[in-house]
Structures are given as C-alpha cells and as structure tokens.
Design a binder for these strands. Structure first.
Length: 1000
RNA sequence: GCCCAGGUGGCGGAAUUGGUAGACGCGCUGGAUUCAAAAUCCAGUUCUUUCGGGAGUGUGGGUUCGAUUCCCACCCUGGGUACCA
C-alpha cells in the first residue's frame, strides 16, 4: 500500500482525541518544560500557511522534550475579545460572542488538522466569563495596591493607610509623582495653600473619606485620571495616533479633536526600572530587548529651575547634561507649555500666539517630519541662570515636545545639535565650554572634553562635572538629580463593548470595587454596539436592569483593552479550571516561567511589556514565585506570499497601412484583453520596445486584427504598427502551476477574460511573473493549510514549513517545493514496504554502514533540536533516508529509531509506521535515542589538502596517523609534487582529522 | 538620523569553535522505464575556461598558514524608532 496520508492522519487524530493522548498532569516526578505559542486572535479569515509556522516549531519542541522525559505543557487558547468582532457586530447587529464562537471553532478545526499536541482540556478564551473573572480580579488587585520604593515592590494599599494613620507621610517612600498634590483642589482640604504633599497622622485623620480616597488614588497602581485623547465625534470613539491622517480619521476622514477624558490608567512607570533590569536575565532576541529599552527610555540627568526675571514664575527643565549648564544661552519651551501665555511680553504676544496656533494645528507627524526646518519665536521674557544670574532669553519652538520631560529645555548650543541649529538660525550666542573644541560650525556632542568657562565646573570631565553640578543645584535648592523615563502609564480604558467590563461602580463619581465574590461581572446586553448620542461608550446603553450586578449610581461604562486578557493567560493554562484563584500557588510553582515562547515580533512593546509588568506585580503580591513570564523567546519571521502576475498588453492606437475601407478603424478598446507572457514583458521593459519577442507579438496581433476586422480580407497586414503599453496584473495563484498559467481557468476566473487573447512564449506556454509580498486576499496569493493538508497531508506541511529556513527569518512561500518533502516521506515509507505494499522489515542486526548513517542522524537531529535549528533537522533526516535507501536497508533496529527521530515532525506518519512495524504501544512514549560515537569512528580519514588555503586534492590516511606522518605522506605524494612544482613548502599545517594546508 | 537583523547558485537555504563553500530540497537539462502520462530511478547543474586551470559568499581593505565566519570603512534590503533635552 502506498503512503495514504489522508487515511493515516484522520485515523490518528481520531485516536488521539478519543484517548486524550495529549492530556498533561502535574507530575512531580518529572522535570517540567513549558512551551507556549503566542495567543492567536481568531479572525474571520481563518489561518493561512504563515500562521502555523510558530505552532509547528513549538509542537516539534514539545514532542522532542516529551521523548526526552520532560513533563511538557503545550497549551493553546484564544485572545477572543477584540475589535473585528465588534466591528462586525456594529455592521450586522450580531452579538460579537456569536461571531467569536464561530471563528474560534474554525481556528480550532484548522489547528487540529495539523496534528498539534495541544492539551485542549486547558484551552482558555479571554472572552469567557470564567476567564475574565480573573482579569477583573487582577485589576481589583492593582487598584488595591501601591508601590513601596523602600521594599521595591507592590503592596496592599492597607499597609499605606496604616502608615498614614500612624505617622502620616513621614517615612513613606512610595512611587508617586513628585507634584501629585498640585492637582488637589486645596480649598477643600484643611492643609492650606502651602501644602507640599507631606501630611501628618492628624492631617490624615481629619480628612473626609472622599478626600482620603482622592489622595490614595495617587498611590494606587490602577487609578482614574483625566487624559488627553484623540476624540472622533463622527465615529463616536477614541482613535490611536496611527488611525489619524492629517487631523482626520483614517477611516471615513472625519475631524478629530483633543479631548480630556476620565480614564483608568495602570502605573507601569513604577516598574520602569525593574522592567529594564529584568531584560538582563531573559534570553530574548536583542532586537526585542532593545525595543523595550528604547520604549522605557531611561535617561539620567537633573531637574534645573530657572527663575523668571521680571515675572514671579519659573521654568523647570530636565537635562541629561547638567555638566554643560554654563553653556546655556537660551531656554526653549514647547509651544503648548503652560507658561507661554503668562510670560510673553506685549510686543511679542501677537507673533507668539500666531506661532502657537500654527503648531497646534499641525499633527504630531507633521511636526516630526519637519526636522530640517528650524522655527521658533522669542517670548520677550528672560529667565535667570541659576549659577551666573545672567539673563537667558526664553523662546518657544516646535522641536521641544510637551509630553517629554517638563516640556522645556535649557539650550546648550555648543553641546547639542538641535540647540546649535536653533542658535544659528536665530543668531543666538554659542558660548564654548569645551577645551580645545571648535563649536562655531557644529556642536560637540561627545562626553570626552574638559570643561572651560564653567566657573566651579571648569577643568572637570563629564562625570565629575555632572556630580558637582547636581550637588550645587541641590545645595542652592534650584534642582536635583533625576532619572527620567519616556515610558508613560498605560491607559486602561476603552470606549468599546467587546472587552472585559471593569468591576467598578460609582457613588457620587467616586469609584468603588465590586467584591471579589461578585465576580465575574458579565457584559450586559445592549441594543446597539455603538456609542450613545452623547458620546458615552456602548455600555452606557445598558439599562439598569440589564446589568447582572448594579450598584451605586452607575456602573463603569468603559471596558478593558485587548491586552488585559493576554497579559496573564500563560498563568491560566497552568490551572485553567481553578475557581479560587487565577492560578494556584502550587501549580504556578510547578510550571513556573515559560521555557520557550514562540511568536511574532510585532508585540515587542505591547503585550510583551505588559505581561512582564503583570508578572512582576503578581510576584510582588505573592501569587507567583517567578517575576519574568518568558525566559526564552523566539520570534518567528513572516511567511510572505508569492504573488503571480500576468501582463496585459494595452493597445493605445494602431495603423494598418493601405487599409482604407471605413474611415475609422475600430477602437482597440473594443478588442478582447490581450495577455502577453513574461518574457515579452521583460523584453519590452528592458529595451523600452520589443526586440527578440517582436515576431511573436506581431504575428498574434495580425491574427487578432484579421479576426476583428473581417474587411481586411486577404490584405497584407505585415506592416501593421501599434503603440502599446504593458501592465502587470495579479492573478490567483491557484490558476498558476510552476509559473505556467492555466489559461482555461484564467478565462473563467473573471468575465472580462472570457475571450482573452494570449501571446505565449517561445515554448508555447504562458509564463507568469511573480512578486514577493504579504499574503493577502487582495493579491490573490493566500495559501491555506487546509488545501495543503488535502493535497499532501499535515505531516508533509509540517515538515515543509520547518524545512523552508530558519524560523526567525521572513521568507517567501513556494508551494512548488513541498513536493520534495512529500517525496521524502514516501521514500521513507517505501523503506519499510515491499513493492506490493506489504510491510517488509528485517530483524537482523544492522551493518556498520547502516549504524553509521543512523547515528550520524541521531547526533545531528539531537544537536539541532537543542539549538532550535528546526530546518536542518529535516535535511539530516533526508540524508539518512537517502543513505539507507541506497543500502536497501530495512533493519528493524534502524527503522524504529528513525521513526522516533521523525515523530516530532511527522507524528501521524511515525505513529502509523510504528504500529505497522508491530509495536503495540505508541511512538509518543518512546525515549529519545542515544547517540553512540563509536559507530562514527573511522579507520581512515580523507584529508583535504590545500595549497595556500585552496583545496586541491584529497588523500585518505589512517585516522590515528600522527601529525608528522601525515605531513610526510602528503608531501611525498605525486599530487603534492605537481602543485609544489619543484619548490619546497614554506610551511605545512596539519590539523589531525581536519585539514592539511601547505604554504608555498 | 539612530538602533537592530540580514546580504551565499535560477530559487529556499547549509556550512555549530576560523579548517573541503554551495549540504538538503525546488527548479532546470539529459537518460531509463511507459502505448502515453503520472510516479519512480540514474546522471548532471556556482561562474568561467584554450579543459591545464582560473575566479567566487554585497563592495573595498585588514588580521591569519587558512576568513561566509574575526576587525575597519562603505553600499544595499528589511524591521523598529524618539527632534527625548
């Protein structure tokens, strides 16, 4: 019997399902291994061949580790809250839960067909109330937590309240904004206007509950705050920056305005430092780590206060170079800086306001793209230099961003390129503070020079001067050393329906948490999934009685963002049915961190950062022992589509010399579409006109014209001339095989091609071109795993995807190549079968050659799997099968072992042959074969002999021949004499069992 | 601009520690088998050549007995990004 993959795969998938073959239990007797795939969002389109790449890779490792004796957790689930389902609900009125359920079912079916060893008993879905109950619970825990800088971890808010009750803020070192108290409405508080954030136990005790609550909200890790958002009235929603183009929504082109909204935020900034330092411990690609480092954006420097000269205000600036403070010759504020209005002098007011107005009208993108253009305006005001007391002019300019630091910079034109350009443009002084450097042409931005003209800093280097400057600033109370982060707190509210509801209700606008025992708070039904007319989120549509729980004056109407559920899902897989906790401490301890995480790099600063944050937080609060979620991560590359192209010849006009009947020739637009083969297009493209393919086209055009213009009769049409252009068009890849177009299929594909004309190449075949681009419906280049499972089987597809190349790299999909892997499996199959299809296996002990092939394969496969080189394993298996086929080997010992080696890649195949070879148990249960070096030992080694590093000939010598004898044997050989050409070698290098190199 | 990854035959790629460049597969060429096709098998396939050789891993240089691998400069492709004080 031939290798009948359809029957075999269906058979084993059924058996695995019925016997629950991949069920995993906690087993203390075995070491654990946790392999995880990045959570998929089940879209309506289903999977294409690019999606399972990482799943196959993880499946191979999971199976390999199982053979190696590990207890392997390899779960799968779905990130099932999200926008596409909500969008569909808005359009159709269908509840997103239904859409989601259908899509998940389709995904699951596709995944199951690929033979993955997921333990589906552990499946989780973020939109399942039993799951999001715990997402809500974690939110509540964040709300009930503050960050203690002393212990460097999150603690229960009650410890903070207790501290306040005993000693006020004295001795409390919390993570809190230095200026937090400025937003309090101090008139209502008993401390008076000189309050600076410090309070005594007595102060605390006299506060009203609402006031206490307000103060605590500045400490909580989940808090409400007013945040600027991009509000689009027409769409009734908040938009992300990249959803806006030229101040209008990308979708629909509606106006977008900045609007303050009360939103939940998570204080991820408290973890900035730990998120940074934690990167040292984890084995991730450097590019991802760098992205996270940049995102967190830690910079060390100082806050410096510049008092205004003729005004009672002051400007605070953040600088990373306090050592250059004596080089300051002006100050620049962001145009939207609060102070601008107050300090601008009357004579400058009009110009300044115009500039502010202009920059506010520009989008973030525009302001960023105008890097080369230096613009700005003088406010007319002066500040005082903190050390010299000199007047420093205050300017405003686009290049200073309101959102970073304090929205103001002290400009040091001699040490900063942008400041330098600004000073040049507006003729401001460029005082030099660097010894031996010329700063008249460009700024000196390195940190190597000794300072001059810098009072007490003169003569110091960068490090010393930085410390000294900060020390002096602190002495004079005009500044302090500060570490600044680019990282912002994470906005955690979304004005959407299809997400986790917050377990929050309001009494007089003060938020309260539901009790944990009331969770989950499920989504109430709504009549429409759109925002209300007043711009409230969709949940505001739910009537009081529709809410499963309703407390206070109203419930929270926002829902959580997409990353809420995915920030902790890897924990739930450990204990998916737990009704007391997200995960039990015992299970969390057993499974621990994810040992191998495989997924795309697109989540570098979103999901991967938030997961780390939540893990650290849950660790702090004592729920898990580890504080990094993913200890090793591999980022799979994208599989790109290989689009096929046809080339349409568009005749612009044509002449038939001598043709006079009928004044006007019919328009070429009335002709059928003309498709030319790739070589014709290339000829035309290369020369600007046709050269070698000219005759092909000419003949065809003549025929065409004759058909279209019957009046031509027997006229000579050899002098027909035409002007034309050729346009490449995408064609469905299913109509193309091996770059040859299926012409009949193409004609049926679109109505306008029914009568199309084809000008083939010299071999009478129509050749298509191709282009590598993303797999997408619009390019007709999507290849689905289902189609390939039908045609070649899941095992072939699995092996082929791995065989394509390194998992991390992006690479084009080529359906052609899959036949090679399929043939390999059939070849392997034939090794154990007779020509008539009966099983044929030989129980004799294997020969030396057979054992050598086998053990070479064991060695290579094992090594490569350990270093996660999935693609080379396939080659190694092919080599072994090729060698064994050449030896006509069907020894049981060899085949059995080879089947275990191949089983991670082709599990159905391995299981079936294993059974056919007479085994009663499953191949899954077999221990991984051990490599024995003794089978690879050879008596002889074939030395490559090179001259000056170029390999010239080979010479077989005894493997244990000493170095000197090798040298002697080589030099005495006739071949060596030829290359030496009478000269004596200058030097001879012999590396035993490696190489001989002769220098002449 | 800066950061990261990468650049090897017609194509995907291999070469693990500096030691035979092009494994393995696709495609292509020729042959066997076949009424024919499919499938299978065999041989060939980096370029060049006067058939002795010669050149060759983006380009140029360097270190070395020996470099795809290490160092320097540059070019190109892909990804990321922040005018970040």
């Amino acid at each position: 019997m031939e290798y009948n993959f359809r029957e075999i795969e269906a058979k084993w998938q059924k058996i695995w399902k019925e016997t629950d073959a991949y069920k995993v239990d906690e087993d203390e007797s075995k070491e654990k291994f946790y392999v995880l795939d990045m959570f998929p969002y089940p879209s309506g389109a289903g999977l294409h061949v690019g999606h399972p790449l990482g799943y196959i890779a993880s499946d191979v490792i999971a199976r390999y580790k199982t053979h190696k004796g590990y207890n392997v957790l390899h779960p799968m689930g779905f990130d099932s809250f999200g926008l596409p389902a909500e969008q569909y609900a808005i359009q159709t009125g269908q509840h997103p839960a239904i859409t989601t359920k259908d899509n998940v079912a389709r995904y699951k079916e596709q995944l199951q067909r690929m033979g993955f060893n997921y333990d589906w008993n552990r499946e989780v879905r973020t939109s399942d109330p039993e799951y999001y109950r715990w997402t809500q619970w974690i939110f509540s825990l964040l709300y009930e937590s503050w960050y203690n800088n002393k212990s460097q971890k999150a603690e229960n808010i009650s410890t903070l309240v207790k501290a306040f009750e005993e000693n006020g803020t004295y001795g409390v070192e919390a993570f809190i904004d230095r200026d937090w108290y400025k937003s309090l409405n101090l008139e209502d508080f008993p401390f008076g206007e000189y309050f600076s954030g410090e309070l005594t136990a007595t102060d605390w005790k006299v506060l009203k509950p609402a006031q206490k609550e307000e103060i605590l909200s500045h400490y909580r890790l989940a808090y409400l705050s007013e945040t600027w958002v991009n509000w689009c009235e027409a769409l009734g929603t908040v938009l992300a920056n990249d959803e806006i183009k030229d101040g209008l929504s990308e979708r629909g082109g509606h106006p977008v305005e900045q609007r303050l909204m009360k939103q939940w935020s998570l204080r991820i900034t408290a973890y900035a430092d730990r998120l940074l330092s934690g990167l040292e411990e984890i084995d991730w690609q450097d590019s991802i780590k760098d992205m996270q480092r940049n995102w967190i954006g830690k910079s060390k420097g100082a806050m410096v206060r510049f008092m205004m000269n003729n005004h009672h205000g002051h400007v605070d600036v953040f600088t990373t170079r306090p050592d250059t403070i004596f080089g300051v010759s002006f100050i620049v504020l962001a145009p939207e800086h609060d102070l601008v209005k107050q300090i601008t002098t009357e004579d400058r007011r009009e110009t300044v306001e115009a500039y502010v107005k202009r920059s506010m009208a520009k989008t973030e993108r525009e302001r960023q793209s105008e890097v080369k253009m230096v613009t700005g305006e003088f406010t007319g005001a002066f500040a005082k230099h903190p050390f010299t007391g000199d007047n420093v002019p205050v300017w405003i300019a686009d290049y200073v961003l309101a959102g970073y630091g304090t929205g103001a910079v002290m400009a040091v034109p001699s040490g900063d390129e942008r400041d330098h350009a600004f000073a040049k443009a507006f003729d401001l002084p460029i005082p030099n503070i660097f010894e031996g450097k010329d700063v008249s042409k460009e700024a000196y931005t390195e940190k190597e020079a000794i300072l001059i003209n810098s009072a007490f800093l003169s003569g110091m280097n960068y490090l010393k001067a930085t410390d000294a400057a900060i020390y002096e600033l602190e002495e004079k109370r005009l500044g302090y050393g500060k570490i600044n982060y680019r990282l912002r707190d994470a906005i955690f509210s979304r004005q959407r329906y299809w997400g986790e509801p917050f377990p929050v209700y309001y009494v007089d606008d003060i938020p309260h948490l539901l009790n944990d025992s009331q969770l989950p708070l499920t989504l109430p039904p709504v009549d429409k999934y759109l925002p209300t007319e007043t711009g409230e989120p969709p949940l505001a549509r739910a009537k009081k009685e529709d809410w499963p729980i309703f407390e206070g004056n109203r419930m929270e109407h926002n829902t959580m963002p997409g990353w809420a559920g995915s920030s902790w899902y890897f924990l739930r897989y450990m204990d998916p049915k737990n009704t007391d906790l997200p995960v039990s401490p015992e299970r969390a301890k057993y499974w621990g961190t994810v040992d191998l995480y495989i997924g795309g790099a697109e989540h570098a600063t979103g999901h991967l950062l938030y997961s780390r944050f939540w893990t650290k937080f849950l660790h702090d609060r004592g729920y898990i022992e580890f504080d990094e979620p993913f200890s090793k991560m591999i980022n799979q590359g994208m599989i790109l589509g290989r689009s096929s192209l046809v080339y349409r010849l568009d005749i612009l006009n044509y002449q038939v010399p001598g043709f006079t009947s009928g004044e006007n020739l019919p328009s070429p637009r009335s002709f059928p579409e003309i498709m030319v083969s790739k070589e014709i297009y290339e000829d035309w493209k290369k020369h600007g006109h046709l050269t070698e393919t000219r005759q092909l086209v000419r003949h065809k055009l003549q025929t065409l014209l004759r058909e279209q213009l019957e009046e031509l009769g027997s006229m000579d049409t050899s002098n027909v001339t035409a002007e034309f252009t050729i346009t490449p068009l995408h064609v469905d890849v299913n109509l193309v095989e091996n770059d040859i177009l299926n012409i009949e299929g193409f004609k049926q594909w679109r109505r306008q091609y029914n009568d199309a004309y084809f000008i083939a190449g010299v071999d009478d075949k129509y050749h298509c071109g191709y282009e590598i681009e993303k797999m997408s419906k619009r390019w007709y280049n999507v290849v689905t795993p289902d189609a390939l499972c039908d045609q070649y089987g899941a095992d072939t597809l699995r092996m082929y995807e791995m065989f394509l190349g390194p998992v991390e790299q992006s690479k084009p999909w080529d359906t052609q190549g899959i036949s090679g892997v399929h043939n390999f499996l059939r070849k392997f199959w034939r090794l154990a079968h007779n020509g008539d299809g009966s099983v044929s296996v030989n129980d004799d002990s294997p020969s030396k050659k057979e054992l050598k092939s086998l053990h070479q394969c064991i060695k290579k496969v094992t090594n490569d799997l350990e270093r996660l080189s999935w693609n080379t394993v396939v080659s190694a298996l092919m080599i072994a099968v090729n060698e064994l086929t050449a030896l006509k080997s069907n020894k049981r010992e060899v085949l059995d072992t080879l089947l275990i080696l191949i089983s991670p890649y082709a599990p159905h195949f391995a299981e079936e042959l294993w059974e056919r070879l007479g085994h009663e148990d499953s191949v899954l249960k077999q221990p991984w074969p051990e490599f024995n070096p003794k089978y690879l030992e050879e008596d002889e080694f074939e030395y490559p002999v090179s001259f000056n590093g170029k390999m010239r000939f080979k010479m077989a010598l005894a493997a244990d021949l000493p170095r000197e004898d090798v040298e002697k044997a080589v030099l005495e050989s006739a071949q060596a004499a030829k290359y030496l050409d009478g000269k004596s070698p200058k030097k001879v290098i012999v590396v035993p069992k490696k190489i001989v190199n002769i220098v002449v």
